[in-house]
């Protein structure tokens, strides 16, 4: 995240944040930034921002930085983060919410049919399941 941000009530409760809350049904304000989600995430080394940073950015209202980031797509929806969270924040659902926000504005993002057959056969099953979760409305 770049330096010097202006935080405001307007930004914190913007329409896109409301949309995220509506889709995911998760209260991100319960998060106290312990970082357990990021510590446990099996894919964290490929992510920027990491799961707890994703939640922090939502708390501060910087959702635009997330819809353009790779993190929600790297997420395999294994829900380790959700299981680990001491405050009951369903981080996996938040990731799904972010993906939905992108998909609802851009249907062509990462469609299953775009993957050629050769690659598809090599992909592990969990990746395919994850992909279904990510792309099917």
């Amino acid at each position: 995240m770049s330096k010097n941000k202006t935080i405001s009530a307007h930004r914190i409760s913007s329409d896109r944040i409301d949309q995220l809350h509506e889709i995911s049904g998760v209260n991100v304000y319960a998060c106290y930034q312990c970082g357990n989600c990021s510590a446990a995430c099996p894919a964290v080394e490929f992510m920027d921002p990491t799961p707890h940073q994703v939640i922090r950015k939502i708390q501060l209202g910087f959702i635009d930085e997330l819809t353009t980031s790779e993190t929600p797509w790297i997420c395999a929806a294994c829900i380790t983060c959700t299981v680990k969270c001491p405050r009951g924040v369903d981080i996996a659902k938040v990731m799904e919410g972010l993906r939905q926000i992108v998909l609802r504005s851009d249907f062509e993002h990462g469609h299953l049919c775009d993957i050629d057959e050769k690659m598809r056969k090599k992909l592990p099953q969990i990746a395919l399941i994850g992909n279904f979760r990510k792309t099917i409305l």
């Binding site: 995240m1 941000k5 202006t6």
Partner: peptide, 12 residues
């Protein structure tokens, strides 16, 4: 500053 996100913040 919000050291959790690593960003300087300004609030009016």
């Amino acid at each position: 500053i919000d050291t959790l996100s690593g960003s300087n913040v300004e609030i009016r």
